[in-house]
Nucleic acid binder design. Structure first.
Lengths: 254, 254
DNA sequence: ACCAATTTGTCCGTATGTATA
DNA sequence: TTATACATACGGACAAATTGG
């Protein structure tokens, strides 16, 4: 059966053919375009499939090699360098490191910046403090196997968690920091998930290539009494992660 | 203070300047680039801000007008046509229409196609049936206010829900169809959220523009006894929706 | 009714980048 | 490597529509 190409390569779309092909290949690679050894089809085959000149495919491959997605070996072929997406769990009791541990070895969380500042309207509403009240802002970055996974920005009520930055610097974990500051347990109350193109900051922080996608979560965590303790916005590299939403109660655990 | 442009407009990146500018404007519009009346800055101002010729900005605006994001009026200015993102709730008991009702008037669900087919490995594992066992496949499309919101593909155990297609055609709702087939209540067990660029099928079904993003959810619903009843993959237009993940139990509501 | 300022719409020409053969 | 075709980007000039004095 002759099926039409799933994604059409469009001319005069404002995106160069080689970049459309690179984007499509990046997508199809994770869907198993390569064979079991990670070997890609030859350039001439790809050129025929995409309906373009072989030179155009070569330009696309060169871009993916530059990104680290592919590796080309003269006389042997082109091979996939990529890996699978990590599962990032979103549960009532999600803990960042707990969730990703076991899937990867080299997991690392870093504090990029911190400040005490007056709460914006949004942060104040989420944390249940007055607008302009002092809040602690943490800028964090997490890496797995040397690749940036997510970039977070969190706010905490300074009156309650003034030592958050210092504690996080020692522990490298929000959960451990909360515990050190007297909060034994906390829960995820709500999470809003959106997706958008990576902006300049995302490209830099998460080491993405232009046109990449970020999954954005905006979350509110609360303590056992239901009082908000953390308001955060996290940007994930969409091609390195998938969000796993499980049931919160455990009524129908399978 | 002179701040550098948040997103740099890059030349020789494989993406035409007008498209980079269109993408950036689309993003900034939702962040409040326009004034309180939805009026955009004049073309010359945007050209100066992006560091390009006015004609290049005009090409970008033309693309956004074509998409329905902007509306240009000679002598008056350029105005935002867009609307807010709809909140799509993901809860233990999420029902599609219930969730979106109240946010929009014209909510519509359509059955595009249906078939009974042997279960693939994934669907079989999710539904708890043998690979190759007969399953019902439903292809659905939902619209709000005349704009496509999501495109779904669901599988059901044919032995239990053989009449799913016919029932859905009458009721236009999965929940109502389950009820008609004797399943009073069901729960969301797990949801995996990923994001990727829209492929040709997404562009067609959801009426998106090239380069658009789709949020993909893969979900398993179970009955009160924890037996899987539905396995589904849903693609959402990322610029029209945000997924709201709430706590499943209600322990810390408020 | 008229004018000036502002803003979008259209035309010209030219240079560069992209894709093919 | 060369040639060709087309899309992209720029610069300038002017027309057309709207607004407010």
């Amino acid at each position: 059966m002759t099926t039409a190409n799933e994604t059409m390569i469009e001319r005069r779309s404002g995106v160069a053919l080689w970049r459309q092909i690179a984007d499509r290949m990046r997508r199809e690679i994770s869907a198993g375009l390569a064979d079991e050894n990670g070997r890609m089809p030859p350039e001439v085959v790809l050129a025929a499939r995409f309906g373009v000149n072989r030179h155009t495919v070569r330009t696309a491959i060169a871009a993916l090699v530059q990104e680290g997605v592919l590796r080309a070996e003269q006389g042997r072929g082109t091979f996939v360098e990529g890996r699978q997406r990590l599962a990032y769990p979103i549960r009532s009791r999600t803990r960042f490191s707990e969730g990703l541990a076991g899937q990867t070895c080299g997991l690392k969380a870093m504090l990029l910046d911190d400040a005490v500042e007056p709460a914006s309207g949004e942060a104040a509403a989420a944390l249940g403090v007055d607008t302009g009240a002092p809040v602690v802002r943490l800028e964090t970055l997490s890496e797995a196997d040397g690749r940036p996974i997510s970039r977070g920005r969190s706010w905490f009520d300074a009156a309650r968690f003034g030592g958050m930055a210092e504690t996080f610097r020692h522990t490298g974990s929000i959960t451990a920091s909360f515990k050190a500051l007297g909060l034994a347990d906390y829960f995820r109350r709500s999470t809003v998930v959106t997706a958008r193109h990576a902006d300049a900051a995302d490209l830099r922080d998460l080491r993405l290539s232009p046109g990449a996608i970020v999954l954005v979560t905006v979350a509110v965590n609360v303590d056992a009494q239901g009082r908000p303790v953390q308001y955060s916005e996290t940007r994930f590299a969409a091609d390195r992660i998938e969000l796993h939403v499980a049931d919160g109660g455990g009524t129908t655990a399978g």
